[in-house]
């Protein structure tokens, strides 16, 4: 079983480290390995750290944080021996790294599977940075690689500027979905996709907490018929459905159990692991944008007539 990897990118100061800490605080029992480029700028809040050993920080709840310097591949290759039983890997890239390239590198390793690329942008500075003579193309390439683009620090700008920036970001990331955030608070369910259990078998849950429920909503559907899973994935990943993340364990026409996962417009259909319970599809979206009717329609269209 491959371990899910989320790549977290974005320029310096966009809030990557804050997001990582937020996810660690809301890991819900997942054992997360965070790989950071270096330990320069205090990657982990000190109250979460329970110990340290060279280039590894021990984090409460069985999580760890390692620095990889220039050699991410070596760190990923070593991880299973070094720390068996890791459920998830978060790679926090350096401010000038291209998250799309990091994601490609993850794809070379059979022990891992890319879940998605999350890129953060600082609402106050992203447009200025994107126009910078030195950094502009690096920033726009970072944004373009995102499956999920988080416009962070929205509390620091006026609502109309925020809306305009959100629209601009949508143009920057044709394959990504854009969400607004403050202090990097994005539901862990949205970034990590599941709580507990392994990647394919665990069920997606609706985001919890008051902050999340103001911004996000979810639908949970029971699917008891056979489905053209691939077609369903395409429909749900299309922009008008408003789905940021979805997961379901469904039966296809041949009777095969398939796990469907969507992050932004990235989708993946894989054989379900033994013991998976079929029949449920959960989708998360921004409140007011998640189109329940469109999802129902997509399902309707992909049912196989029996």
């Amino acid at each position: 079983m491959s371990v899910s990897v989320t790549v977290i990118g974005g320029f310096l100061g966009a809030g990557k480290t804050t997001l990582v800490n937020h996810l660690l605080r809301n890991a819900g029992g997942l054992r997360i390995a965070v790989l950071v480029n270096d330990f320069g700028a205090l990657p982990i809040d000190s109250d979460l750290i329970v110990g340290s050993d060279g280039d590894t920080l021990e984090i409460s709840g069985g999580c760890i944080c390692c620095s990889y310097g220039s050699d991410l591949m070596e760190a990923l290759l070593d991880l299973p021996q070094r720390r068996p039983g890791i459920d998830r890997v978060l790679i926090e890239t350096s401010g000038v790294a291209l998250p799309g390239m990091v994601a490609s590198a993850v794809g070379l390793l059979e022990a891992y599977a890319l879940d998605g690329i999350v890129v953060l942008a600082d609402a106050e500075t992203v447009r200025r940075h994107a126009a910078d003579a030195y950094l502009g193309d690096t920033i726009t390439r970072q944004l373009a690689a995102a499956d999920l683009l988080v416009l962070n620090r929205c509390d620091l700008i006026a609502a109309e500027v925020r809306d305009e920036t959100l629209r601009w970001l949508e143009g920057q990331a044709p394959n990504g979905r854009v969400v607004p955030a403050e202090r990097s608070v994005v539901p862990a369910e949205l970034v990590l996709g599941l709580r507990g259990g392994d990647r394919a078998a665990g069920a997606l849950r609706a985001p919890g907490g008051i902050a999340a429920s103001v911004l996000y909503e979810s639908v949970e559907l029971t699917v008891d018929r056979t489905v053209d899973v691939d077609r369903l994935a395409r429909s749900l990943a299309a922009p008008d459905a408003g789905v940021l993340r979805a997961k379901g364990c469904l039966r296809d026409a041949s009777g095969r159990l398939v796990v469907l996962q969507i992050v932004g417009r990235r989708f993946e259909c894989t054989d379900a692991p033994a013991g998976a319970t079929p029949g449920t599809l959960v989708a998360i979206g921004l409140r007011g944008q998640l189109d329940r009717a469109a999802i129902d329609r997509a399902l309707e269209e992909t049912y196989f007539s029996s």
């Binding site: 310096l12 401010g95 000038v96 291209l98 030195y134 193309d137 690096t138 390439r141």
Partner: peptide
Amino acid sequence: APNGLWYTIPG
């Protein structure tokens, strides 16, 4: 070819 890569952050 697209422009190359920064290996170190300007700051």
